[in-house]
Design a binder for these strands. Structure first.
Lengths: 246, 246
DNA sequence: TTTTAAAGGCGAACGCCGTTCGTGTCAAGT
DNA sequence: ACTTGACACGAACGGCGTTCGCCTTTAAAA
């Protein structure tokens, strides 16, 4: 036995068949993970089937055995990201606070993973983790005394608001990435230019804009997100009724 | 005169130099108009430089003399669409009602022009008509007694909400267009499937969803839009202060 | 009227993209 | 040991935005 030890070297014109190490088996999880890696590293616009395949050391065609297409891949990545959000056990006394926390957490997680928020704007998310989120938010509200009809619509509206804001923020990130600048320099540049532009407008046609440049430019992304979120939530609170006897 | 009437036919090997009718001069306006035509007819995903050029009977390279690229074309189309919205003369007594009307009108106009709302999510609109909108909304609020800082952020938040909802709606339109179905059939199909899907979920893990399918599915796009809008506006109203002596 | 220079139309090509086809190869079941 | 079915993957298709370079047209200059 052990012919291998004294084996004659393979002739060089015999192209080595096992290029890396046998055949690495792919799987949907591996594809999704690679996609998420590309997304976090290089952003949404860089997430192409070719790039994901490259990340896995293969060609684009290989992915289609595990994923029906790019759309499905995006939905899978999205659901995976949503899975990172923790849901509290509903407490009727703190329902508003809990709902707010879930919204903020969702915003944070979506913003952390580049532009994936776009996916939830483009689809009605039906992955297991998205359903978990919807169920959790519904439970917090309904157990807090919000009428089911209101709570149902609120899930929709909150999801839209959170995703839209995260998406908008990610687009700035993408531009900054393209520009190659430091994130701070980029932001200063954009806001500086915009402030100068506003101030340069004809004051007779745009008196409000010219007169309130400082207010228009003030506040960062998170501050503005929470401002809008609190508008929505304070509006919602008026609908809440005391819990009926259980 | 009138040699034309009895003119000898041009020899066919003499390739006709004026193919259509001399050279039609292009212009930025013509390009933008053609782009809007494509958008309304075939949707966002069909709006390519090639397609717009085809609409003008030329090649894609010709457009770049009038537009720096696709991004600028989209912004120009967007601003043109925004120009369709009418702004009221601010009336301090009816500021909330006026603001609401502007938001609804904007939503309607954006939704009418397919997916153009996407552009305002991707950019901070700075076209003349977009500025006019911002100025108008600011004026309504500030003259209505809303503190300038709140009004400034509200312009941002309202724009985000309106654009996001219009964008989401347009994505359904795009799918319906792709599927080739009638709009009614498509909607019934989607909502029917979704309702069936929700009802098929395990009731122990998703009791709220399974128990409130009817509420989750109820209401059309406009109804939901106005629900969210009124949440935002009722939250805003709490900030309004009586106008100081003028 | 002729010349000339600037402006702009446009065919062709580059390098991306998502997706499909056909072939090759491995590993598990017989 | 052989068969077979799943799947990896190179190559190619048709689309995209954009650029290059040539050529026509036009309007001002001579």
């Amino acid at each position: 036995m052990d012919h291998e030890a004294s084996a004659v070297p393979v002739p060089p014109w015999r192209t080595p068949r096992k290029t890396t190490e046998a055949r690495r088996p792919l799987s949907q999880d591996l594809v999704v993970e690679a996609g998420l890696r590309v997304l976090d590293a290089d952003g949404f616009e860089a997430l192409s089937m070719r790039r994901v395949a490259q990340e896995l050391g293969t060609g684009p065609a290989s992915l289609y055995a595990h994923v029906t297409g790019k759309d499905e891949l995006l939905e899978l990545i999205y659901d995976r990201v949503i899975g990172e959000i923790e849901l509290p056990e509903p407490d009727p006394d703190r329902w508003l606070e809990q709902l707010r926390q879930v919204a903020v957490d969702t915003f944070t997680v979506l913003a952390a993973h580049s532009d994936i928020a776009k996916v939830s704007l483009a689809n009605i998310p039906t992955g297991p983790n998205s359903l978990r989120m919807a169920e959790g938010a519904l439970a917090i509200m309904i157990k807090g005394g919000v009428p089911p009809q209101i709570a149902s619509w609120m899930v929709d509206r909150l999801g839209l608001y959170v995703a839209a804001d995260a998406y908008e923020g990610s687009l700035h990130l993408a531009r900054q990435r393209t520009s190659g600048q430091d994130i701070g320099d980029y932001m200063d540049g954009i806001f500086g230019q915009l402030a100068v532009f506003y101030r340069s407008l004809p004051a007779d046609r745009f008196p409000m804009i010219v007169g309130h440049v400082d207010e228009l430019m003030s506040g960062g992304g998170v501050e503005r997100f929470e401002f809008g979120l609190d508008l929505l939530l304070s509006g919602l609170a008026r609908f809440a009724r005391p819990i009926p006897e259980v």
